[in-house]
Amino acid sequence: MQSSLSESLAGAARLAQTVGESVRAVAGFYHERTAWRELPDQRRAFLRWVEGADERNVADRYAALAREGVTRRWGQLLLTATLATDGSRRYDLRHEADAERGVGDLTTHDDPLDARHIATNDDDGRYRPLKTAPTLRTGWVFPSLTAQQVVQAVDFFYPATVANWYREREGDLDVTHWRETAERQTGIYDIVDELSGEQVEWLAESCCVDSQCLKRRMWDEDEDTELDVPRGDGAFPCREPCSLVIAAARKWAVFEGESEREYTFTLTPSEKGQLEEILDAVADGRVDEIREADVFDGANRYRARWLRAKRAAEDGTLPAVEADGTGDEADGADADD
């Protein structure tokens, strides 16, 4: 008798839940068909994408919105849309690495403008000049943003990504390729157009791959000359070399103006291998991960200090013998032709 009573109560609870969900779903659908209609196309398209409106039928979508919510990733952001009782949406916005953490474990925010400050430094307190670098700080959450607020917050975390994503979706992303961007530069950046195609490949490999930037590179050397470097898998496109790429290109354009020379260094095989490990560790941003006493790693600080003590002069330079007469005839000297 008791068990059938509890079963009935459980059934009633399930029914009530289903009815509640149905009411919210109808309200949500009505809201989508009325309030959203007023929104600019770009914003509406993004909000619809967040809840997968083009990928699942209305019933499934609203069932999901009413229960656990619908979740999407945008760079390192995790957006979860749920239905409020009036049919409007509420959005939980946080770092994807904090997906499993409770709101109470995170620093909560309700003003989208806070996104600018969260995005300024990484978890180690270092300044992030590139907003789409994969170094977004963790530990925060916007638990209940409105539709308007979530788009604003996303635009502060990853400026212009929604606008460019929408243009790409509509088939009218205005890509500006390297040559056009480089030739447009003036002042101290005037020289960046001196980089050769091969050098532009190195540039993209240095700055634009997924490990460095979450945008998906859509620009190439020019419209007819694709770069071989992987474009990346990001949700949002990169339509033009950014200011960091231009600033780095200026430095490389200056360096690449030097002619190559041949040097003779004396190193043991292990020391040569160690220099290669140091190069990799710095290029891959791995230096901070190397344990204090891990002298098996060539980029370990003690290992580097030993090498410097043994091989470097007092001023830190590496004594090398410069081969006579090879300076101007080295192979790379014509790289800028």
Partner: peptide, 16 residues
């Protein structure tokens, strides 16, 4: 910004 984002180049498309 000239050196930050949104860039001068892309800011106008971010306003409605």
């Amino acid at each position: 910004f000239w050196k930050e984002e949104p860039s001068f180049r892309e800011v106008l498309r971010t306003v409605e």
